[in-house]
């Protein structure tokens, strides 16, 4: 009964927005990576600089309140790229500033992004241990 009365999200429209906005952010990333590559940075440094640039850009848009406006339409298009991670870090920092630099900004900054770091890191440690024991068997 509840399921029937509850409207669904407009799936097609949501996906189109997510596709074009998410794709555009990645396209921008590819442009930056090429640019940094031409400037003489090695591949891994160019990739890291690309991330840093996108993070900074997302922080500026977040501080201006524009990232939220874009995200209200783009959904996963702004959530899934690294700019979404930066938004998840920067927005609580701004919001909880009034509760103090230590108890607000410091304590709440990773309230949304924290789980990503915890479980991402956990997965990488598990893989690291597995890799350590698998390595001799792989002939490496």
């Amino acid at each position: 009964m509840n399921r029937k009365a509850s409207p669904r999200s407009p799936l097609g429209k949501d996906c189109l927005w997510a596709f074009f906005v998410g794709g555009s952010i990645c396209l921008l990333g590819e442009g930056l990576r090429t640019l940094y590559g031409r400037a003489g940075f090695v591949l891994t440094d160019a990739a890291a600089l690309t991330s840093v640039t996108l993070v900074a850009l997302s922080a500026v848009l977040t501080a201006l309140g524009w990232y939220q406006k874009l995200a209200s339409r783009a959904g996963a298009g702004t959530l899934v790229p690294i700019t979404g991670f930066a938004n998840a870090v920067v927005s609580p920092a701004i919001e909880y500033r009034v509760e103090g630099l230590v108890t607000g900004v410091g304590a709440k900054m990773f309230v949304i992004a924290g789980p990503v770091i915890v479980w991402g890191m956990m997965a990488s440690v598990v893989w690291g241990v597995v890799y350590y024991f698998l390595r001799p068997m792989m002939g490496g």
Partner: peptide, 17 residues
Amino acid sequence: ERQYRFPLEYGGKRTPT
């Protein structure tokens, strides 16, 4: 919002319900 959901600047899409 800041108490129950997310910071105001956070880009979380609201569901239609």
